[in-house]
């Protein structure tokens, strides 16, 4: 597991997200409904980064073509094209810091 670099939890406001790199993996950490989520920061449709995409109601929308993903499971909600799921990572908030577990 890894939590490098630790993020200040306060830096991630409701409906916002940040791109981080942990163990060489691009991760998107965001907050929706008060809860933190961490998913792979690479849309399974056309490979776009997800930071800058809209985060709302537990869903992130890719900023490039709008593919929507359930943040809790990574499942793609855009059923028409049936994209693969995003990878999800356990994330916790501890001592004002965000920790993401990346295997």
């Amino acid at each position: 597991m890894s939590d490098v670099p630790p993020l200040a939890a306060a830096a991630i406001a409701e409906g916002e997200g940040v791109a981080v790199e942990i163990r060489g993996r691009a991760i998107f950490v965001c907050r929706s409904g008060g809860r933190l989520y961490a998913v792979s920061n690479r849309c399974t449709h056309a490979g776009s980064r997800l930071d800058g995409g809209k985060v709302c109601d537990g869903v992130v929308a890719c900023p490039l073509h709008g593919a929507k993903f359930q943040l809790s499971t990574g499942e793609c909600l855009s059923r028409r094209l049936n994209y693969a799921s995003l990878k999800t990572f356990p994330v916790r908030e501890e001592g004002g810091r965000v920790h993401v577990d990346v295997p």
Binding site: S32, G33, G34, R35, L36, C56, D57, G58, V59, K68, Q70, S72, L77, S78, R79, R80, P90, R92, E93, E94
Partner: peptide, 21 residues
Amino acid sequence: ADEAAAPVAAPKPKRAARKRA
């Protein structure tokens, strides 16, 4: 409708998630 743009209902912050935090 095909694109299922309607987001799935917002998951309520779950207890389990809170415990983990």
